[in-house]
């Protein structure tokens, strides 16, 4: 790939919004990992292999509480299924790329890179190179943030007890965004209702799996009903 300076400049300016949110959220992630007893290289490993925002936070609690692999898989499936739809948008374009580069573009498809890719005009010069560089830069921000957070967590002299609340805060914010953008609020209400119900019935250590299963089952039924 020929990378001229101009393409790099465009990609960098496009990635600036991602820079701030990724560095910050990844640092919170690294600190929460550190507080849960994991080292910065553990955070680096997860950020390197998994590379997904919200799910990495849930993974910390799964790792420290020892959730079953079934719960882990189902949570990952349901939380990240939206990214299947992201890759679908760029399917035809990605299929023109050589295999290693296609795999990289698929791996780096996150909420934020998707949003930036969607904002690129179709006649953008070197469009695919800009996409690749945005993906590469964003991934670097995320990795740097994770490591920095872990190291800062060790250096900060006071106790980080309660830092895990940043996950709750992040999810509440995502929920508000989704609520504001939605015309129908039934799915969110079903999630809250089933979640609370399952928590009461199954207890806090084993309610996630039934809650996720019942929630997606109910949504499926709703869909089938709506199709008629």
């Amino acid at each position: 790939m020929k990378t001229d300076k101009q393409t790099l400049q465009i990609a960098f300016s496009k990635s600036l919004t991602i820079l701030f949110s990724y560095l910050f959220v990844a640092m919170a992630y690294g600190m929460m990992m550190e507080q849960a007893g994991f080292a910065w290289y553990d955070s680096l490993l997860v950020s390197f292999t998994v590379y997904t925002g919200a799910l990495q936070f849930v993974l910390i609690t799964f790792l420290s509480s020892g959730a079953s692999l079934l719960t882990v898989t189902l949570t990952a499936l349901l939380m990240n299924s939206r990214q299947t739809f992201y890759s679908l948008t760029f399917l035809l374009e990605f299929n023109e790329l050589p295999l290693p580069r296609r795999l990289y573009m698929i791996h780096t498809m996150t909420d934020e890179t998707y949003a930036v890719n969607c904002s690129l005009p179709l006649n953008q010069p070197n469009r695919k190179d800009v996409m690749l560089l945005v993906a590469l830069l964003s991934r670097c921000y995320w990795l740097i943030g994770s490591v920095l957070g872990g190291i800062l967590g060790q250096l900060i002299p006071f106790d980080l007890m309660g830092i895990d609340f940043c996950m709750t805060a992040l999810f509440v914010i995502i929920c508000i965004d989704q609520w504001e953008n939605a015309t129908v609020h039934t799915p969110a209400l079903i999630g809250f209702g089933v979640g609370l119900g399952a928590l009461l019935v199954f207890g806090k250590n084993s309610f996630m799996l039934p809650a996720l299963l019942v929630t997606s089952g109910l949504l499926l039924l709703m869909n089938k009903g709506g199709a008629k």
Binding site: T168, I174, P187, A188, L189, S216, N223
Partner: peptide, 20 residues
């Protein structure tokens, strides 16, 4: 359609998880 509904429902379950 499922793909459009799932994220907000799952996020709600996760908030319950955070407050468990």
């Amino acid at each position: 359609r499922l793909g459009k509904m799932l994220p907000s429902a799952i996020m709600a379950v996760l908030i319950v998880y955070c407050l468990k």
